[in-house]
Amino acid sequence: MKLVGVEEHYLAAEVRDAWDAIGLGSRDPCVFIHLADARIGQMDETGLDVQVLSLTTPALHELGPVGIDLAGRANDAVAETIARWPDRLQALATLPVATPEVAALELERCVQILGFKGTILCGRVGSRNLDHPDLRPIFESAAALGVPVLLHPRTPAAEVRSAYYSGFSAEVDAVFAMFGLGWHFDAGIQFLRLVLSGMFDRLPGLQVILGHWGEVVLFYAERLVTLDRFSGLDRTIATYLRCNFYVTASGMFSPDYLARAAAVVGTDRLLFSTDFPYQYRPGGDARRFLAGCGLGEPDKAAFAHGNWLRLTGGSGATQRGGIGR
């Protein structure tokens, strides 16, 4: 059974240098991950057939116009890497999100020319949340192209970190605000802001992916329905969760979490991922989780690769790789 990881990251040296030039590395730290030959061996160790590559958080969200050329070079470099392993790698586009009109055009180029499968956004763009009207061209482009948007966490704003994630050692504060908890609340809130802004009423075909079993959102689905009385939206929160929302594992290999996600969004909206390198799982761990995840064989195949193929089947100039032909 083919196994596709849809949230698997890299960080290019040029992007890291751009972060360092504005001091972003200390404010929003991340992990350096090469696009290197070793990646294929690591995929084999964990049991993945295909990785869908994406630039790690906070991507180009703080780089302003500098991000325009940088995005193009990053995407071209990823396309060259995919050309070396077309059966093993796919990609989500890196966008110069601070210039949304340009970002929309870059997404179009990546999908139509480079064969990418969608894009990744990493939370706020400067002081703007993702529902800000300035950023609509990006979502409009994704909807028009029929490709998904993966919402990745990023570190909460400094004032939020100070109020809620501080008071311990510098290391504990940082982890608490990032992958310990802060990242996941941040990403879930960004998705809910998109819902409450009416984004999915304006773009009913737009599809968004959240990692880590829905970034807390799914575990409060019953509570979120109370917003229906006040939101003024066309549909209910539960409907958006079942019509505009995909969920991926991000290396959190829990059958209980999978069952909860399936109950809320349906088995046809479950996607697999290992969240490499943040949760690097060697020794065939991904395969073991798939084998014992509790799904029947048809749903297991959908989770492993079928849902991703259906979601992205119409995207890209070509269908790269053995599972996409």
Rank of each mutant, 00 (worst) to 15 (best):
R260I: 07
S169N: 07
A91C: 03
G115R: 04
I120Q: 03
A187L: 04
V175W: 13
R124M: 11
L241S: 01
G292E: 05
G321H: 11
E14P: 00
A79E: 12
S197T: 10
H184G: 05
L48Q: 15
A174G: 00
L130I: 13
V66I: 09
V31W: 06
L53C: 01
M252A: 08
I120F: 01
C110E: 02
C243H: 13
A104S: 11
L271K: 01
R39W: 02
S315F: 04
N129S: 14
A286T: 05
T94P: 04
G266M: 07
L60T: 13
Y164H: 15
P298C: 08
A259D: 12
D28W: 14
L24G: 10
G41Q: 03
A12M: 09
L70Q: 08
A36R: 12
F303Q: 03
A286M: 11
L210R: 06
P100R: 10
A59R: 03
M199D: 03
V97C: 09
G306I: 07
T248S: 14
E215P: 11
P255G: 06
L95S: 02
G126W: 06
D285H: 09
A157T: 01
S127I: 10
L258H: 07
I189M: 15
F179K: 00
I120E: 00
G284S: 08
T248N: 13
M43W: 07
H152N: 03
A142Y: 11
T46Y: 08
T56V: 15
R223S: 04
G292Q: 04
V50Q: 12
T312W: 00
G115A: 08
S315H: 05
D299V: 00
A142H: 10
T248G: 04
I237H: 04
L206Y: 13
P133I: 05
